[in-house]
C-alpha cells in the first residue's frame, strides 16, 4: 500500500451528529486541493453522514475503516 500523507487530523471522537461533519468541513478548508485529511469518529451515524457529505461536496472519501468502535475516514480535498 502506498504511503498516504495526511495533512490534517480531525478528532471527532465522542461527538455526536452533526459535529463530525462540521469539524470535517472546517478542517478540509485548511488544506490545499488534493491533500488528505483523516477523521476519527465514534458516532456510528458518521459512516453514512460522511459518505453523504463527500458526495454533496465532491471531496473524495478515499478510505474508510473501523477499529474497536472508532471509525476512521480519509478524505481528499476537491
Amino acid at each position: 500500500m502506498a504511503v498516504v500523507e495526511i495533512s490534517q487530523h480531525v478528532d471527532a471522537r465522542g461527538s455526536s451528529c452533526p459535529m463530525p461533519i462540521v469539524k470535517t468541513a472546517q478542517a478540509i478548508k485548511t488544506v490545499a486541493s488534493g491533500q488528505l485529511i483523516e477523521v476519527l469518529a465514534t458516532d456510528p451515524g458518521s459512516t453514512k453522514d460522511l459518505a453523504a457529505w463527500s458526495k454533496t461536496t465532491g471531496n473524495e472519501l478515499v478510505e474508510q475503516s473501523v477499529d474497536g468502535g472508532v471509525y476512521r475516514f480519509v478524505l481528499r480535498r476537491k
Binding site: 451528529c17 462540521v22 468541513a25 454533496t56 461536496t57
Partner: peptide, 12 residues
C-alpha cells in the same frame, strides 16, 4: 442549529 450548521458544512 443542527440543520443550519450541517447545511453549511455540506457546502450549501
Amino acid at each position: 442549529m443542527i440543520l443550519a450548521s450541517t447545511s453549511a458544512a455540506m457546502g450549501v
